[in-house]
Simulated assay, not measured.
Amino acid sequence: MYDPTRLAALVAVAEAGSITRAAERLGYTTPALSQQLAKLEREAGTALLVRHHRGARLTGAGELLVARARRVLDELAQARHELARLTGLSGGILRVGTFQTAGIHLLPPVLSAFRRAHPDVELTVADHEPPAGVAAVAAGDVDLALTHSYQPADPVPLPSSVRAEPVLVEELVLVTAPGHALAGDSARLPLAELAGQPLISMAPHLPARRGVESALARAGATPSVRVPTPGYALVCALVSAGLGVAVVPEMVARTAATPVGMRRLEPGELRRTIAVVYRAEETAPAADAFRALLRGAFGRAGQT
């Protein structure tokens, strides 16, 4: 059975004429949308798109599937609207907490899908930098929140009323100024090669980053600039200006507003897990529907 999210991605490319423009329309990064399309082609067992320098066009198989997909998506939208009346999703408010990276790069397509499915539910989005989102959910200030944790790190216990569901796991990668010697190779860079490198140190006092910063210190990276709050846009700007190198989530590196070089690290054990937290004992149809959309959009943790 084809994943409706991937069918919607194919329809968007057919309408936009390119993967890049479709990604902008849906709120995805271009690599994330390309990944969804590649999975759909594997499910179909044939090529659905032909990429060219001006964008992408459908193959014969792609045209056939898009025609069917439009009908399927229309039927699903109608079904969601009818089910909403039966499950209490015809009104009310869904309060979502998020941190900046997820709010920019993960939430928009899911919020769009939720709005299409449940147009009568009012949406509010609040900024809660981890771990504040967990506390906001526990206190009832928001219905659910996107948060993150880093590996390696000591586990942080959740309040007894709160559960966490992993959404996405991504590697941490090295970012450098464009043209930096360390970024000029496609092979993974051993952490030991960071010895003596000036490091933009990311909030080493915060529990979420402490384990990562310790691993970098053991590798011999030398703090050059310390950024006391986890502002990745600022970190990438400092790196781009040649003030040092940094280790950031891959999503951050690929969507940096300033030009940076990127390289994967060896071993690939430095990771960030993005999860959605919610109140476990509370019946909340809107929150449950939103979590289901997150699962459909990003799959199980580790399938990045």
Rank of each mutant, 00 (worst) to 15 (best):
Y2P: 15
Y2C: 01
Y2L: 09
Y2M: 08
L7P: 08
A8C: 06
E15K: 14
E15V: 03
A16R: 12
S18A: 12
I19K: 03
R21P: 00
A23H: 04
G27L: 07
Y28L: 11
A32H: 12
S34E: 10
K39A: 14
E41D: 03
E43G: 09
R51T: 05
R51H: 13
H52R: 13
G55P: 02
A61E: 11
V66L: 11
R70C: 01
V72L: 09
V72T: 14
L73C: 08
L73N: 02
L73T: 10
E75V: 14
E75H: 14
L76N: 08
R80C: 08
L86P: 00
L89P: 06
L94M: 07
L94W: 10
L94N: 03
G97V: 03
T98G: 11
I104V: 14
H105V: 12
L106R: 08
L107P: 07
L107G: 07
L107C: 06
P108L: 10
P109D: 06
R116C: 01
H118Q: 09
P119Y: 07
E122H: 14
A126P: 01
G133W: 06
V134G: 10
A136H: 07
A136Y: 05
A138S: 15
D141L: 13
D141H: 13
L144K: 08
T147I: 11
S149G: 13
Q151G: 07
P152G: 10
P155E: 11
P155S: 11
L158R: 04
S160K: 06
A164P: 11
A164I: 03
V167G: 00
V167A: 02
L168R: 09
L168F: 08
E170Q: 14
E171W: 09
E171A: 15
V173E: 01
L174S: 02
H180G: 05
H180E: 01
A181L: 13
D185L: 08
A187G: 09
L189Y: 10
P190G: 07
A192V: 08
A195H: 13
S201R: 15
M202F: 07
R209L: 13
G211I: 06
E213G: 08
A217C: 01
A221N: 02
P223A: 07
T229W: 10
Y232E: 09
L234G: 03
L234P: 02
L238F: 05
V239P: 01
S240E: 08
A246V: 07
V252K: 05
R254H: 11
T255L: 05
P259S: 04
P259Y: 06
R263N: 06
L265N: 02
E266C: 01
G268E: 12
E269G: 14
L270Y: 00
T273Q: 02
T273N: 00
T273K: 00
V276T: 12
V277H: 02
E282S: 11
A284R: 15
P285T: 10
A287Y: 04
A289H: 10
G296M: 11
G299M: 03
